[in-house]
Structures are given as C-alpha cells and as structure tokens.
C-alpha cells in the first residue's frame, strides 16, 4: 500500500505572553492509503493540534508533512486551501454546518467551491445514501444532532476525498445517534476507500480503527495496530 500521510519530526510552538511554548514534540508516523487511524489522548494532549496540522489548517513550526506525496509544510495558506478542497474531507464534533444554507446546499458547498459540475445532483444522491433525502431542504436548526452530523458526513464525502479528518465526530451525540453515525462513517469510508484520521477520546470508537496513536503532553507515546472491532451497519 502506498503512503497517504507521512510526517517526520512535526513540531509546533506557540508564542504566549509568557514566552514560547512547545505544544507538539517532534512527531513522526506514516498512514497508508485506505487505512483508518484514531488519535486518542486526554484533553490538552495535543491531538487536535496534530489534526489541524495534518489537515493543513495550521502551519508546522518544524518538520515535514506529506499528504499523498504533496509537501503540505511548504505550501502557503491559499495552496493548502486548494489542496484541501481537492483531497480532504472534514467532520467536526459541532457539525459546523452553515446555518443559513439548507442540508442540500451544505452538502453541495465543497463541490461548488471546487467548481465541480452537477453539484446538486451529486449532493442529492449522497443525501439519499445517508438517508436524509427527505430533509434536503431543511435548515440545520430544523434537524436533530444526529441528522446534522449525517449531513456533515454527506458533505465530507461529496468530493470523494482521499483523506477524511474527523474531530470527535460523535462527541455531541447520544449513544443511539453515535452508533448510527459511526456505522455510516465507516461504511462510506470502506466503500470510497478513503483514508480516515479520527480524533477522539472515545475508546470504543477508536477501536473501530486499524491503528491508534496515543498522544500525551504533546508527544506520540504509542502507535498500536489492532484488529478493528466490528461496527454495526447503518440502517
């Protein structure tokens, strides 16, 4: 399998009023294409910082990140944005839907930004896949939390990204909805052959992934490969 993500000595410093703070110690690892990994750790361990760097939302202080062999660490903000639009999908804990757009329009958004043709038809199809075609013209505040996250998943997959980053995707959901969302996420991941990077402190969710990276105090303390536990299929 080819390498989809490759980091070497990725480090992050931030400047505060009390001086410079190192929030990520040099981190190196590799993720194969189609692999799913979970980054786990306590609050403040640096997992979200790492996710931000891997996704190109933030700049590394030192080190290198290659996404699908593209050197993310040398790109400027605009280049990274274009790269994200073509290769990366996102799912967030707080769903991050645009409140003034309908479910359908939210799903269309990445396709439109990337100037893909037939955005509407594609969005409608994927909304059917996540079982929300009947809610296409509803606004986010008219949907339940679970429904909003399914819309977000649909939005993440519309451009068939190579890599999907998910930040605590079930963190805001009850058990039942969590299950549904998890199932949907892994199902689409499998079907589309996407590489999944998931940040969570939910061990059950983490164990559905091929690998777990454990973070502590800004350091990668463990990289374990396990046999993923089965995920209930989405209905």
């Amino acid at each position: 399998m080819t390498s989809m993500i490759k980091t070497s000595n990725v480090t992050k410093f931030v400047t505060t009023s009390e001086g410079t703070l190192q929030i990520l110690r040099p981190i190196s690892f590799e993720v194969k294409a189609g692999e799913s990994i979970a980054i786990i750790g306590a609050s403040g361990s640096g997992k979200s910082t790492l996710l931000g760097l891997l996704a190109g939302l933030d700049e590394v202080s030192e080190g290198e990140i290659l996404l699908d062999d593209a050197p993310l660490h040398t790109m400027g903000e605009e280049e990274r944005a274009v790269f994200r639009g073509k290769n990366v999908g996102f799912i967030f804990q707080s769903f991050m839907l645009v409140q003034s757009l309908t479910a359908l329009e939210n799903v269309m958004l990445p396709a439109e930004i990337a100037n893909l043709p037939n955005a509407k038809a594609m969005a409608m199809r994927i909304l059917e896949d996540v079982g929300l075609a009947h809610r296409a013209h509803h606004f986010p505040n008219q949907l339940s939390g679970g429904e909003q996250q399914r819309v977000a998943i649909a939005r993440a997959f519309i451009t068939t990204p190579k890599i999907l980053f998910a930040d605590e995707p079930t963190g805001n959901l009850d058990a039942k909805n969590s299950e549904k969302v998890e199932a949907l996420l892994f199902k689409l991941n499998r079907e589309k052959g996407t590489t999944l990077v998931l940040v969570t402190h939910d061990n059950t969710l983490a164990h559905h992934c091929d690998r777990q990276l454990i973070m502590s105090a800004g350091e990668l303390t463990e990289d374990s490969t396990v046999t993923p536990s089965p995920v209930h299929e989405a209905h």
Binding site: F90, M96, L109, I113
Partner: peptide
Amino acid sequence: FDPVAIMKTLGATKKT
C-alpha cells in the same frame, strides 16, 4: 466567522 472558517476548510480560497 464560522461560515468563513468552514468554507476555507472546505477549500475556499481568500479570493473566493
């Protein structure tokens, strides 16, 4: 602020 951050995350450039 949020919609702009979302759109940028989803690949929108500053120009867009």
